[in-house]
Amino acid sequence: MLRDCINILFTALPFIAVPFVTQKSIVSLAQYVRVLKLFWQVTIAAELEYRVNFVIAVISSIGGLAGSLFGLFLFYRTDYTFPGWLWSEALVVLGIFTILQGVAATFLVPNLNKIVSYVQEGTLDFVLLKPVSSQFWLSTHTVSLWGLPDLIFGLVIVFYAGRQVGLSALDYLAMLPPLGFGILSLYSLWFILGATSIWFVKIYNVTEVLRSLLEAGRFPIEGYPAAYRVFFTFIIPVAFLTTVPAKTMMGRSEPTWLLGSALLALILFQFSRWFWRFALRFYTSASS
């Protein structure tokens, strides 16, 4: 079962490599994919040494899920419903949130939270010397299997709730683009915050702030007061991470939201690349 999951993980390789390939880069897409595959084979082999960790991850994931369901249930046990969201529809949002949590734990946390320590210890030098894009190296060189249970349980909830809402296979496919854009936005924000460590050095907790704000994505954005909605749409784009994919899935999203989600992801990603190059100009390495 674990092995199947790992194989599925590897099918994601080309999608992850694509954004990092530009016309100017000397390394081709195929080479990026090969590098990525090597990175992951090594880290997965290392992680499989600690199988107990995986069991703990599964148990924590189940506990977290029970808690999330309980939190949502507290709202719906009275007659109150989030405006325009039935119980099963709100469940879809929760499922997508759980998937994103899994994605973050698998790909983002193990990589991006380490940028801080590279800067602090001066080992960033070794990364910069390598012939691949340093942003690519920093963002992808490890995966953590700890996030897999969240990914799987998130999918289970989405499919379960989707059946109750009466969604077709096509609806699930329609969700993929906004979900992909959401993940790209999330990654870019996270990376930008991680990159600020070039100046501040000791900022483990900036990403903690981001994480705690993302918790808002557990619930449909319509459940919040107006001021919160503005904040979670335009300042920390939580709405685009969970509510927009869920709405798209149920065919209730206007094209402008989808367009906004795509634009946001592309702009944030482009900004993260520019910001990283900008930040590097201020990097005073340990050896020079």
């Binding site: 000791k202 900022i203 907790n205 900036v206 702030v209 705690s212 704000l213």
Partner: peptide, 11 residues
């Protein structure tokens, strides 16, 4: 500076 972020992360 770090403390501000810790306070905010309790949001």
């Amino acid at each position: 500076a770090e403390l501000i972020f810790w306070v905010l992360s309790g949001s």
